[in-house]
Design a protein around this nucleic acid. Sequence first.
DNA 1: GTATATGCAAAACTTTTGCATCCTT
DNA 2: AAGGATGCAAAAGTTTTGCATATAC
Lengths: 150, 150
Amino acid sequence: MSNINELKNTGLKATLPRLKILEIFQTAKQRHMTAEDVFRILLDERSDIGLATVYRVLAQFEQAGLLNRSNFESGKAVYEINEGKHHDHLVCLDCGKVEEFYDAEIEKRQHAVASEKGFTISEHSLSIYANCTKVNCPNRTTEPVRHHHA
Amino acid sequence: MSNINELKNTGLKATLPRLKILEIFQTAKQRHMTAEDVFRILLDERSDIGLATVYRVLAQFEQAGLLNRSNFESGKAVYEINEGKHHDHLVCLDCGKVEEFYDAEIEKRQHAVASEKGFTISEHSLSIYANCTKVNCPNRTTEPVRHHHA
DNA sequence: GTATATGCAAAACTTTTGCATCCTT
DNA sequence: AAGGATGCAAAAGTTTTGCATATAC
């Protein structure tokens, strides 16, 4: 289905900024992007799309189910294409790299825990912050690494 | 051990603002507090402690291991006393209430997943966002509730 | 007494909003 | 043509920082 129809099906008008931003998420090298990341790409392409519009479109896309938002410990909201497959995140504390994973057992236990506490899960988010052991980790330091919670 | 010694053991001078803030975390009704929450309590007590100091002390306390910081979907950093017992959080989307839980199976699976991906876990954070089914949920609405990711 | 911590104000950053103008339908 | 969408600039909200003064050791 065309992106134009994809937008219309969600009730959103197929405007140029929305098409451009959707396309960026479909084609960018990095899957997880902040509003600023998207804006930077738009600037590089000389699209005259304002930062406020980027924020508005990202919020609308999340509402429409096209994107998912995550709040990692950076303090900035991060968006990614919603492909309908729920997953959790593993974030490298050294380089910020994000990997995705899905573990059925973890999912099951989460629902069990919520039930026990009298909650009904609508959404959940799990982020593991760790140090990747890759030699080529760009931000790798010789210093012992910070240990954060988020 | 006295709070004065507790601070000194971590290498922090036992200043009045630090003692006051530590005491607030030890005695407040709510376990999870933002910088603003702490500052509000200080204002109520007419302590002349600035907001900037609150932020600085919270960061130092986290560094020192006295507090743990979490970033829920609110966008504000939340702190709680570190009692050495790792746990995860269940956050009510209606009232913001935070419950804590620990599930050994989830922990085990998290380590397994990280290993598979070539990561070494130093810290991790899991937050389940859900709707509590309590009748007395303060912010309870009749409206269907927002479904967020974080 | 010296180094560190604090208060205040200003700045930095991310995100939101008001409003006139423009675009999609 | 009409209503929603956009751009710009200003505002809002959280957190950080510069600097003179005050405090702990």
